[in-house]
């Protein structure tokens, strides 16, 4: 229900704007002048002024800035014009200005997709730099925390800690733990009970099993 209402409103706006835009924009013989002012709020020096220019309809008409940032573009017949502020360092919002043959001005935001949509802005234009343009990509910085917390390093370091530190925590001299470990070892390596194929072969060829010697050598090796 609510959704419906919103869409009604949208439709209404659309229709309304269309009606407005259908006003006459014919070309009379009279010439008009667009005026405005440019601000760059975050700098103090005026260096930016000489590199800033107003271009209308992609350079058909030009406007130059005075030292206070004001500009005027004259000799325009009535019609609809796109206004861009060009500066290599700052972003400005483009605007569109409609001038009727009676000399009425209307400034609005540029909307290339819905050409008829209107959201008016004040005339004479006051265009403020939105931000500094960032043309560049940020280089990834090397930092120690990134390095330490990277999965690869974690994967390598943690097992190392396990291997190096854990045996130290357990008192290896304690005979009880020694026995326990021994039993664990034996449990973990069932190899002792299953003869290897190669051993089996050697046994077979040398004639007769030598089990006792085998079981004696094994644990010593492990140590």
């Amino acid at each position: 229900m609510n959704e419906n209402r919103i869409s009604y409103i949208l439709v209404f706006i659309y229709v309304f704007s269309y009606v407005i835009c259908d006003g006459e924009l014919g070309s009379g013989s009279e010439r008009f002048k667009i005026e405005g002012k440019i601000f760059v709020p975050f700098v103090n020096d005026l260096e930016w002024i000489s590199s800033t220019k107003i271009i209308i309809d992609g350079g058909r008409y030009l406007g130059f800035l005075k030292s206070d940032g004001a500009f005027s573009v004259s000799n325009l017949p009535s019609g609809s014009y796109s206004i861009e502020v060009i500066n290599p360092s700052y972003v400005f919002e483009p605007a569109r200005i409609d001038i009727t043959s009676k000399g009425k001005f209307r400034a609005r935001k540029m909307n290339n997709i819905q050409l008829n949509a209107v959201s008016t802005i004040n005339y004479p234009l006051k265009l403020k730099a939105r931000s500094r343009i960032n043309y560049f990509q940020e280089r990834e910085k090397w930092s120690i925390t990134d390095m330490i917390f990277s999965p690869m390093v974690l994967m390598m370091v943690l097992p190392l800690i396990m291997v190096m530190v854990l045996p130290k925590l357990i008192n290896a001299q304690d005979p009880e733990t020694q026995r326990e470990m021994q039993s664990q070892m034996n449990f973990l390596t069932p190899k002792n009970n299953i003869p290897e194929f190669s051993e089996f072969l050697t046994n077979l060829l040398s004639g007769g099993p030598k089990k006792p010697s085998q079981s004696r050598t094994k644990p010593s090796k492990r140590r």
């Binding site: 002024i49 130059f64 800035l65 005075k66 030292s67 500009f71 005027s72 000799n75």
Partner: peptide, 17 residues
């Protein structure tokens, strides 16, 4: 167009049509 630019920095001084 008749335009005057400052010599120091190239700012527009005035413009007449």
């Amino acid at each position: 167009f008749v335009r005057a630019f400052t010599i120091n920095q190239g700012f527009l001084l005035w413009e007449v049509n």
